[in-house]
Nucleic acid binder design. Structure first.
Length: 574
DNA sequence: GCCGTTTTCGGCCCGACTGTTTTCAGTCG
């Protein structure tokens, strides 16, 4: 069965919104949103936990929420939820999507003016009926009218692979400025989330006005959206907004900690500070008398709170704080741990660059090996290699090997997994490759059970070494195929097949949460670029970032092994 | 509604900003 975590999370979030509209206690509302967030992010199957009677072990889930989840999972319905829906007019929840309207104002609009939709809200604002409400006035009314008209056109997110290079270019230029003591990307970019809302950058300086002026006159600036003493904002020529904050050097660590987030992580840390009668803010960590305990560096802040510094990729409130307190954080894999790339295309199929150029670029990255893995015949659009062309490619690679030794060129393939789970080359051909990655590129719409069976069958094929981009998702464009990822990972573990963490910015597949689960199940991962040009070899950094967000250590990644260990691993599979 | 170096009740992150107010409430990040 498909995992129902997301479904349960939606239910709990809906309940939170309905409670908000009823003017319920913010803490009660937060309890539901917290539980929803945890359930959506965790790898454990919510139904499995329910069967084992362990729902209350989920952080943030107590007796009441556990009972509601159980009722919903068993019957597909929840009386409490249906009662709430009856009490709140349908559609009213959309009021909360309007910036400037939170629970309190929505409740007021609903109960005092009977407004139940954004359209009604616009009309009421235009007719100046809002300004009569307590706490409302002409300016707020005007703002709500403006925002209500724009609802729906927002929420444009960026791929990490778009946002990060821009942020790094800005940071590099800022660091070169004499008034800048430090500068870093902050927010979800620093945490390497797969998609990014805002591009936030933090800088430390004793002369903020000079930094602001340098920032607003960067070469990529198209328009200055906001200036002011410490918080300028620009629009780049690519129409991307970048926000900068400049803080005093003594506050930089606390500010970086705060602006990196995640929100939940920061809240949890502040709670710990509270427990000691201290106070943590973006200005520093202060004791009960208001004396600064820490703030210059992030490490100071974490250490003062009795824990190890936590890598930004882990700051999602998924157990990292407890691990840091126990000094038991994972030693996360790094890009420099990689000894080679195992998924690379050339102009023999749909790559842009020649095989030789791809190998040269791999050598330039100080790798010990690279696997050339072009497509198989049934992928016509990508000029998949026929058996004859595979053999011609192998002759070329055999010739190049001497020239490049001791650098190791592996002849591999990214072979299509056909709808029935068989592969797109005969076994005799597959046997001749040094490494076989099997991926799905067609018939993406199979029903859940058939898709799962298709992948499991491919995993048990004797010549498959790696399962490529296992869920097929394309970020911001297409969700994962219908499949039971847990079952696929278990099959990969049983078959000893590694699973790819594909670094293409719109894939990042396997995702962070499933990387973590994969390692728990003993599945080996491979961090690859899936490069279609020499430049794209750099995409491995996004694969590594995704693995890091999944708590993955170097020994969980096959291509951290040196040449001899990798070859031994592959030979042993044959 | 959850949770416990503040333990079974009484807390639950902090500060900026805006707009409403005349000292504060709501929203946002």
């Amino acid at each position: 069965m498909a995992r129902r975590n997301e479904e349960v999370a939606w239910l709990l979030n809906d309940i939170a919104e309905l409670l908000a509209l009823q003017g319920e206690s913010p803490f009660r509302i937060r309890a539901y949103t917290e539980a929803a967030r945890t359930i959506a992010a965790m790898a454990e199957d919510i139904e499995e936990l329910h069967r084992q009677g362990r729902l209350e072990e989920i952080p943030g889930v107590g007796e009441s929420i556990a009972r509601k989840i159980a009722e919903y999972l068993v019957s597909g319905r929840l009386r409490y939820y249906e009662d709430l829906q009856r009490q709140v007019v349908p559609g009213a929840a959309e009021l909360l999507r309007v910036p400037g309207i939170g629970p309190a104002r929505a409740h007021l609009l609903l109960t005092r003016l009977g407004i139940t939709s954004v359209a009604e809200l616009r009309r009421a604002a235009q007719e100046h009926r809002l300004r009569e409400l307590p706490g409302f006035g002409p300016k707020l009314e005007e703002r709500i009218a403006r925002e209500a008209a724009r609802v729906g056109e927002r929420s444009r997110r960026l791929l990490l692979g778009v946002a990060l290079p821009l942020a790094e270019e800005v940071v590099t230029r800022l660091r070169a400025h004499p008034a800048v003591v430090a500068a870093d990307p902050a927010g979800s970019i620093r945490r390497m989330r797969e998609t990014i809302g805002d591009i936030d950058i933090l800088a430390a300086s004793a002369h903020p006005e000079e930094v602001v002026s340098a920032f607003t006159s960067l070469p990529m600036v198209q328009e200055v959206l906001a200036t002011g003493p410490t918080r300028p904002s620009i629009l780049t020529r690519d129409r991307l907004q970048v926000d900068l904050r400049v803080v005093a050097p003594g506050e930089y660590g606390a500010a970086l900690q705060y602006f990196t987030g995640s929100k939940e992580h920061v809240v949890a840390l502040r709670g710990l500070a509270n427990a000691r009668d201290w106070k943590l803010s973006e200005y520093g960590l202060f004791d009960h008398a208001g004396r600064r305990i820490a703030g210059r560096t992030e490490a100071d802040v974490y250490h003062a709170l009795g824990m190890d510094w936590i890598p930004p990729e882990l700051r999602e409130s998924r157990g990292e704080i407890e691990a840091a307190q126990r000094h038991a954080l994972p030693h996360l894999v790094e890009t420099t741990d990689l000894r080679g790339d195992l998924h690379v295309h050339t102009d023999w199929s749909d790559g842009h660059d020649s095989l030789e150029r791809m190998v040269d670029a791999a050598v330039a990255r100080h790798y010990q090996y690279v696997a050339i893995t072009d497509h198989s015949p049934s992928l016509g659009v990508a000029r998949g290699l026929t058996v004859e062309r595979v053999q011609a490619q192998r002759r070329l690679i055999d010739r190049l090997r001497e020239r490049y030794a001791p650098f190791c060129i592996l002849h591999g393939t990214e072979v299509n997994i056909l709808p029935d789970g068989s592969l797109d080359y005969p076994d005799a051909v597959l046997a001749g490759f040094d490494i076989v990655t099997a991926s799905i590129h067609s018939h993406l719409d199979l029903p859940h059970d058939r898709m799962t069976a298709r992948l499991v069958r491919a995993l048990h094929h004797p010549y498959v070494d790696v399962l490529g981009h296992p869920t097929g998702r394309l970020l911001l464009r297409r969700p994962a195929y219908e499949l039971d990822i847990e079952a696929v990972l278990r099959a990969a573990a049983a078959a000893g097949v590694a699973v790819e963490v594909n670094g293409q910015p719109d894939r990042l597949d396997l995702s962070d949460v499933w990387c973590r689960r994969a390692r728990e199940l003993g599945v080996l991962l491979v961090c690859t670029s899936d490069a279609h040009s020499t430049r794209q070899l750099g995409y491995v950094r996004y694969a590594v970032a995704t693995a890091r967000r999944g708590w993955v250590e170097p020994d969980g990644v096959v291509n951290t092994r040196d040449r001899e260990a990798l070859l031994a691993h592959l030979r042993q599979r044959r």
